[in-house]
Amino acid sequence: MDSLKRILNLVKRELTVPFALPNKSFFGDKNTYSSSGRWLFWTYSFPFLMGLVDCWWQSSSFTTAKGILYGGLFTVAFAFMIMREYLKKTNRAFVILLPASVQEKFAAKIIAYYVIIPLTMLVGCTLGYYIGALAGGFITNGQANFAFDWEFFAKVFNFSSISIGLMCMSALFLITSFVKNEIVQVILGVAVILLLMSLSLLASGIKGYADWLDFSSDIATYVVYPLISLMLLTGSYIKLKRERA
């Protein structure tokens, strides 16, 4: 029970502090709760703005399910933040002092970045885009001709894309555990994601030979990609454990 309590405390910290370390604010002040709110505000305002632009400037590309896509991609992008405290020596030392075991710290990271952030991002970005699209529609036509694009939704939000997203996040988790420079992290992260995508595309070209790598095949979606994610996560855990040793 104590362990659960500690994990929940750490999760709360994960969601607020990396964006507002003591005296070092990201989008907020020292009050971590309000800063967390502001961070969410800034994230959601982007899909809102894009919804507004899409339906105001480009009334043709009217896809309200696009919010889901923003949510998913933001989730992957936030994976760069997983090991943020480890970029600086002082913050790293501060993390060591947190009263919890390495396992608990790792579990807190997984809950925060693999459960809570994806959910808040998907709901918030969809809502943000929806409100923006409505506002854009009102400005252009004086009315909101809102229609949810189910076809697009199904294309974006299926187990295959969730599986790929998880694998990309795990790859970023591993990269941020090892590399301590933000620029190199971004370059490596984008390169690895591009490589994974190209390999998958290549596998889809030679059907029947490398189905296990092709993300449109079931074996890749349900077995191979989750396995790769698990391996990458294990790597990250081992690194985290060594870092705390």
């Binding site: 070092k24 990201f26 982007f46 894009m50 590309s61 896809t63 696009k66 896509l69 923003y70 991609l73 933001f74 992008a77 760069f80 697009f152 294309k155 974006v156 894309s161 933000e182 620029i183 971004v186 984008v190 595309l201």
Partner: peptide, 28 residues
């Protein structure tokens, strides 16, 4: 899916937004 223009538009937008965030973090 990769023939869908909307998807690539959003991917590129978010990539550039990340670069902008990175410049802020770097400055910070």
């Amino acid at each position: 899916w990769f023939f869908n223009r909307t998807i690539w538009t959003v991917v590129v937008q978010i990539f550039f937004l990340c670069l902008l965030c990175l410049s802020w973090l770097r400055y910070k």
